[in-house]
Design a protein around this nucleic acid. Structure first.
Length: 939
RNA sequence: GGGCGGUUAGCUCAGCCGGUUAGAGCGCAUGCCUCACAUGCAUGAGGUCACAGGUUCGAGUCCUGUACCGCCCACCA
């Protein structure tokens, strides 16, 4: 291996390193009864997706966990893959088709699907390549796709099982309908956004008492024009066009204004339909006029009202949101055009009241952002309550834990109020429902039910009934089990994409087959995800896990924050505030990106990012690079493969040696603990501080000046500490650590000459995770070294403040009454000279009286720096006086605290002791400083 | 309407089980091209820990309330 280039260039190492790891099979994991598994399932990114910062954070965290586990000796498996993202993918392909001037209907289902598959083959792996650039150490052999044969099999299996248990049913429900995508959307797929709209007040004439029958909810059109009108009831709506489907008006039962009207009828303007006025607590008296029009087929609340009060359900919109089943002038109009026309017509005929500006929450399709229409339509549902039970129990009992724990409540709250899940989608790309309809059964039903001729117009909500002629089967049935007919048609709909993703933790391991993988790797360990997806995916995976496997899919759910820009906005394309992770990788390197993401926040907190932060990561990588260059440049470094015991090498371990080794142990403990607790930022910054400040700023500087007889020990330690710290850093910054580690290893290990060497790992990612060596923890060395640091820093500070040029190497007098302290400084005299740029150093028991000297008192040690001609005595006096004032103030504080603590029994003795020591130190220091001041004043 | 999070240096954020003198990075100022690194070294300035109460010998940390910012959930038509 060639020497390290002087400049660190991430591009030179990253791709090659990744390819090498992969070719060596380091990412692979297979069942091995001798080792403990550690498994992560990747949240399958959407196949149309590209890597955004949220993915980058998510996958960095997962990669840290998996690399950490791998180095700890676990058989670590990370299964990658993508989901087929039904609507999104279909959209992409449809867009491409549109450029050719075609619609999917022009191709037909089969040809269209072929196009989608082609697209998937060509572009579907983009995000996986991007994950590789991020360094993700997935077992790529196992890459899965939710439309794979195996995973599709799992989907059908679950559908059939659920159906057979009565947990899947078909029904007419109000669903969110995207008129553009022409499909049903789950509530989670139609997030509400605040929308500026208008609140239209419309006057519905009230039918005079005594006319019309009082039959509940029967709405026969009023044949006569509205002559018997006595007054109006005014309602408010944001979607006037839905009035055409109104079948009632509702008021609050206790609302005095309308009390007398309850049970009477109103007339729907323009349509002349008779509407019953009902009373229901769901109505908000405060809102609008306190009276609400009821459109059971086009509003979720009204739907509930409709069921409760047995109203008619009139569907007035087609799949593409054109009006239907409405009076002539409106028939076929687009919903919005109809709205405008209605307003004009209402106005002309005097039915229109006020129009207010109104901000309301409207659901928008999460794919195309079209406003969704609540709409009655036949869909397939999963009954969720029974599935939720074990999923609730698991979390309550702690079988599954959330990190941070506060998400537990969010999860439970949702689970306990869970709604049935609409799983059918009216698109082509996806798993087609394994449902078949017998044509002859259907025909028989229709003829036997002629009265339902109006059914086209009026549909009633269905509840779960197993319908004759409906066959649910994994494979296409030969004949209808009811009538034996062979004319069978498969349901046109496909399943919600999440219906395949919720099976991911076990379907990727081979379920429903009983595979070795499944037995060994399931349940998985950690699920890392963003909070947005708790309901979408996490909750459902838990349910699926219990339903299919009778066991949880994972044991820990680690929720990380959302990545936001510097102003707190969510990063999104439409806001144009995207920081592209790949661009950052290109500019600063993958390690820098990962480091920055990980240090940016404590887990669970949102992350605010700005580009400057990535430079810090790059600088850190560069620092490591250069530190390693320094270490490698030491003569004879190749001899030090292992850390010798003190005394086994020429020279003994100095205080600095003991200090850095001790600090390494502390760091190892801290990093290990932090990673185990998902405190990634803590682990990363502990390593940053140790490597940069302890190792580079101090130990490396010291290493440059150790006497010859101690050099072997120092070199061994330089190499050891760096090598160990690189291991600790590897999960966070895999590339640069591997590169440097290889050079260190190459520089320090003879090539394997026998099989005895075969245990030596050839990659840092397979190296053992450092253990804390208790024997190397050395509090005394830490204390001593800290004193040395304090003295050096004090001297530097003074020089800097007094503008003493570096090239003048002033002498220094040290004084301490303690013999061991004097001894310590005698030994470290050369070091002190180097690091503080000093001339002669004298060490004495008693302070000398030196005129024209800068004086410092550090940790009980007096430091005098004679600076004849270099300092202004007045300036120095002022400096000392300032110092003395500070000390006096601090002492007063300590005194007050001590009083508090001493005269109570509750303050622990230890704390009182600490305060006493502190006070004594301050007193001693103040005394010495004032003596120096006195000397100066004598001048 | 419910629930949750945040408020600490100019900026972005750490701060564990309450305990010495509240930290980091960036930015800023000053001095340094010191033979690993100017993507660097040294030094410094900068904080009433949002506000008000409370618990405690002791509160950035625990409790209550207030204000502001943000997020999630919910059927304001």
């Amino acid at each position: 291996m060639s020497a390290l280039p002087p400049q660190y260039n991430p591009k030179d190492v990253e791709e090659a390193r990744y390819a090498w790891w992969e070719s060596q099979g380091f990412f692979r994991a297979d069942p091995d009864p001798k080792r403990k598994p550690y498994t992560i399932v990747i949240p399958p990114p959407n196949v149309t997706g590209i890597l955004h910062m949220g993915h980058a954070l998510n996958n960095t965290i997962q990669d840290i966990l998996i690399r950490f586990a791998r180095m700890q000796g676990f058989n670590a498996l990370w299964v990658p893959g993508t989901d087929h993202a039904g609507i999104a993918t279909q959209n992409v392909v449809e867009k491409a088709l549109a450029k050719e001037g075609k619609r999917r209907q022009d191709l037909g289902r089969e040809a269209f699907l072929k196009r989608v598959w082609e697209w998937k083959e060509q572009y579907g792996n983009t995000i996986l390549y991007q994950l590789k650039r991020l360094g993700a150490s997935c077992d790529w052999r196992r890459t899965r796709f939710t439309m794979d044969e195996g995973l599709s099999e799992a989907v059908l299996e679950v559908f059939v099982r659920l159906y057979e248990k009565g947990l899947i049913y078909r029904g007419n429900y109000i669903i969110n309908w995207c008129p553009r995508c022409q499909t049903a959307l789950a509530d989670e797929e139609a997030p509400r956004t605040e929308t500026q709209g208008k609140l239209y007040h419309i006057k519905y004439p009230i039918l005079r008492q005594g006319t019309g029958d009082r039959g509940q909810g029967k709405t026969t059109p009023v044949s006569r024009p509205m002559s018997p009108v006595s007054a109006f009831i005014e309602v408010a709506t944001t979607r006037p066009e839905t009035m055409l489907g109104d079948t009632a008006v509702a008021v609050h039962p206790k609302d005095k204004r309308y009390k007398t009207l309850i049970g009477k009828h109103a007339i729907l303007p323009l349509v002349n339909r008779k509407l019953v006025i009902i009373a229901d607590e769901a109505v908000d008296r405060e809102f609008g006029t306190g009276a609400v029009k009821v459109t059971p087929a086009h509003d979720p609340v009204d739907f509930q009202l409709g069921k409760k009060h047995k109203l008619e359900f009139i569907n007035v919109m087609t799949d593409d949101a054109k009006m239907t089943n409405v009076p002539k002038p409106y028939e076929g109009l687009d919903r919005l055009d109809c709205r405008s026309k209605l307003i004009v017509d209402l106005e002309q005929q005097g039915f229109l009241g006020r129009i207010d500006e109104h901000v309301h929450n409207v659901g928008h399709c999460y794919r195309c952002h079209t406003a969704v229409e609540p709409r009655l339509s036949p869909q397939w549902f999963v009954k969720m309550k029974p599935l939720a039970e074990p999923a609730i129990k698991a979390v309550k009992q702690g079988t599954i834990k959330f990190v941070p724990a506060r998400w537990t409540k969010v999860y439970l709250n949702w689970m306990e109020n869970i709604q049935d899940w609409c799983i059918s989608r009216q698109i082509w790309w996806g798993h087609r429902l394994p449902v078949y309809y017998c044509e002859s059964c259907r025909r028989r039903q229709e003829t036997g039910d002629r009265r339902q001729a109006k059914a086209q117009r009026v549909s009633r909500p269905m509840s779960h009934v197993s319908e004759p002629g409906v066959i649910v089967s994994k494979t296409r049935p030969e004949r209808c089990p009811t009538c034996g007919g062979t004319e069978l048609a498969q349901d046109e709909d496909v399943l919600d994409t999440w219906f395949s993703s919720w099976l991911w933790p076990f379907s990727t391991l081979g379920w429903p087959k009983k595979t070795k993988d499944l037995a060994y790797f399931y349940p998985t360990d950690t699920l890392v995800t963003a909070q947005e997806i708790i309901f979408f995916w996490v909750a459902r995976m838990v349910m699926a896990g219990y339903f299919c496997m009778k066991r949880p899919p994972f044991t820990t759910v680690s929720i990380h924050g959302t990545v936001r820009d510097i102003t707190g906005k969510k990063m999104s394309k439409s806001l144009g505030n995207i920081i592209d992770p790949l661009e950052m990788i290109g500019r600063y390197g993958t390690d820098a990106l990962r480091y920055t993401l990980v240090t940016a926040t404590a887990i669970g907190q949102d992350i605010f990012l700005s580009e400057e932060r990535f430079a810090a990561g790059r600088n850190f990588a560069n620092k490591l690079w250069n530190a390693t260059r320094f270490v490698l440049a030491q003569d004879g470094i190749e001899k030090y493969r292992v850390l010798p015991k003190a005394g086994k090498v020429p020279g003994t371990f100095s205080v600095a040696d003991r200090w850095i080794l001790s600090r390494l142990q502390q760091t190892t403990a801290r990093v290990t603990k932090s990673l185990e607790a998902s405190l990634f930022n803590d682990a990363a910054s502990a390593l940053y501080g140790f490597l940069w400040h302890d190792f580079c700023d101090w130990y490396v500087e010291i290493a440059k000046h150790v006497p010859a007889e101690q050099q072997p020990a120092t070199r061994a330690i330089l190499r050891h500490v760096l090598e160990q710290a690189l291991r600790l850093l590897h999960p966070v910054m895999p590339f640069v650590t591997e590169e440097l580690w290889q050079h260190l290893r190459q520089g320090t290990t003879k090539p394997p000459v026998s099989r005895l060497m075969s245990h030596v790992p050839i990659s840092i990612m397979k190296a053992e995770w450092p253990k804390v060596e208790k024997r190397l923890i050395d509090r005394e060395a830490e204390r001593l070294f800290e004193r040395l640091q304090a003295v050096i820093t004090a001297i530097r500070t003074t020089r800097s403040e007094l503008n003493v040029p570096v090239e003048s190497r002033p002498p220094v007098h040290l004084a301490s009454p303690q013999a061991e302290v004097r001894m310590f400084f005698e030994i470290h005299r050369p070091l002190l000279q180097q690091l503080a740029a000093l001339g002669d150093i004298s060490v004495e028991a008693k302070r000398q009286a030196v005129r024209h000297a800068a004086a410092m008192v550090v940790d009980g040690v007096e430091v005098l720096m004679p600076l004849e001609g270099l300092i202004d005595p007045a300036k120095e006096r002022a400096r000392l006086q300032q110092r003395l004032d500070d000390l006096t103030r601090q002492r007063a504080q300590a005194e007050a605290r001590l009083k508090d603590r001493q005269f109570t029994t509750k303050a622990p003795a230890e704390v009182v002791e600490q305060t006493k020591t502190r006070r004594a130190e301050l007193q001693d220091t103040a005394k010495k400083v004032s003596e120096h001041l006195a000397v100066l004043q004598g001048m």
